[in-house]
Design a protein around this nucleic acid. Sequence first.
DNA 1: CTTGACAATCGAAGCGCTTCGACGTATCAT
DNA 2: ATGATACGTCGAAGCGCTTCGATTGTCAAG
Lengths: 342, 342
Amino acid sequence: MATIYDVARETGFSLSTISNVLNKGPRPVRAETRDQILAAVRRLNYHPSAIARGLALRRTNTVGILFGVVEPSAVVLNAYSAAVLQGVLSGAAAAGYNVTHYTERWRDAAQSEAAFRDRRTDGLLVIAPRTDSDLIPTLARLDLPLVAVSWSPEHFPIPSVDADDAVGARLAVEHLVALGHRRIAHITGHPGLLSARVRRAIFEQVLCENGIEPRPEYVLSGEYAQAAGHALTRRLLALPQPPTALFAGNDEIAFGALEAAREAGVAVPDRLSVVGVDDRPLAALMNPPLTTLRQPFQALGELATRLLLRRIVGEEIEAGPHLLRPELVVRASTAAVSADIS
Amino acid sequence: MATIYDVARETGFSLSTISNVLNKGPRPVRAETRDQILAAVRRLNYHPSAIARGLALRRTNTVGILFGVVEPSAVVLNAYSAAVLQGVLSGAAAAGYNVTHYTERWRDAAQSEAAFRDRRTDGLLVIAPRTDSDLIPTLARLDLPLVAVSWSPEHFPIPSVDADDAVGARLAVEHLVALGHRRIAHITGHPGLLSARVRRAIFEQVLCENGIEPRPEYVLSGEYAQAAGHALTRRLLALPQPPTALFAGNDEIAFGALEAAREAGVAVPDRLSVVGVDDRPLAALMNPPLTTLRQPFQALGELATRLLLRRIVGEEIEAGPHLLRPELVVRASTAAVSADIS
DNA sequence: CTTGACAATCGAAGCGCTTCGACGTATCAT
DNA sequence: ATGATACGTCGAAGCGCTTCGATTGTCAAG
């Protein structure tokens, strides 16, 4: 493989001149010289080595990506991380950066730090790191530019992006309120999860803002799973005065709810409106198609990448979190409350 | 950031000794020396630069991945490439390699070759390159180790892996034959696609092997899409003597077929058995759950990576194609032909 | 006819690491 | 005692590129 030395020998010019030409450097060059060099480059089929250049410039034009919480065996199969990754790839592509996937799973600072200290990438994107691990604090200490996706800077202040769960929940609940519902139930995800707590808090707040008195029996803590949605919806429907609308903590819960409603002979949306969160591919295929919140996962990846690239060029980025709004996708599982049940 | 020079200064030993210790090199080292060096490394929080090492060794411990046919905006959202990528990540992780995603879309040799000549990666995985592009021939000329996924080496002989479409199709059709079906129809994907042609050829061959006379009206050329499956199945069901079984070119076609059968009041599997190809997530959720071929996409990614790593260490790899068997997932859309319709 | 100023190019140092021949010392058999 | 060995370490070259002060030539202004 040809090196820059070969070009030098072939043309008789010095390395510096050639480098200057190739990188459209600041020094003036005679047109004839430039042409000769470019011709030799083509003739020799010369391409600069990214590695050597990386050494000299201390810049690799590559961003790293590391998945925190996801199992390494399913990094990309999971809809969330696939969407984020896609966003990252688009963002990086737009700036001419490549992205390298760190495949090693994070163990702890002592064991895993090494991989990230090798200056292989110009910066690092961390996707959904666990709050209980030392990953972020450790990496933040390296002088590597760092941006996290789905991380609360309260835990440790680094630039972060996330979906605006509060706005999303508000969108969903206000949609139900706007349809005239006042007997609105909520099935949460596991109460240990931040998202579950935020959604629940906003749910109660929006009811309150609209003068709707909260009923404890309408708020059920569950899990982000279809089985939980199914079981808890059955319980709701068996109430003496069942709700006319349900804000499901996510789509899986909503799927379970639709199932339970069907079994109980409760028509959706005629007698029960259901709204989910996430817009899983299946949501549109439900019967009826599910009204749900579409999360801006891909946009998160893109935004995170843009922020990281700005950090890489030295700009200061505030920790944020930089929040992106989910979008309410209204389908057929929600409708105005009907007079006879309201 | 500490460099190896700092370690040298700190300990008083030479670079070569330190390098030898750090890489567990071939030279003997006094235990005391080793300890001092390792202590200094820890104290200075020194980590070798992957870039500098890459320059010296001409090896980066990184494999590149490039998606050929897929739109860059959906590289990972697509089930096929996500699964392959997942396999690649697992395979690379097992060997301690990272994988860098080339984000730039392939245009043509002149424009895009540069990115791959920069020795940034030790080898390259190309996923589903288009047969009508100069991608593979161009990259093969570089001295970069190369392995392709879903590429027929007949077009250009490089090591390749692929799903064994012929075996898969045989599995599907023989399943129907084994259930006693003799009036078996086939709806193909776009006849321009190799997979569609292979599946059709095997379909006809298996019928022939089993003494079933082919009926031209039972073989319909379509497209890998639900709409095509729907329309063509209607046509099949309207035949004076409709088929009792359908080998759908893929799951989308099968979904359309189920829809058409339902509309026509034809019970599946009682009056029509349907088998698809791909095992999309939806397949299991159909009514009835679809019998289909599960493609070994993730395994393809892993195998390709393993082959590439062997090439990287200098082993010769035969072009293959190295084929992996799909697996027939029998669900409820196929059943023995019933006496009254056979 | 100087003197800047600028254009065009060169040279050498540096980026951080690996490799391998060379160079002492101990150790050992002879 | 004396080469021959093996041990432990060093030094210098090399990987392929960028950068920037230094150098040479050219031309217009003074």
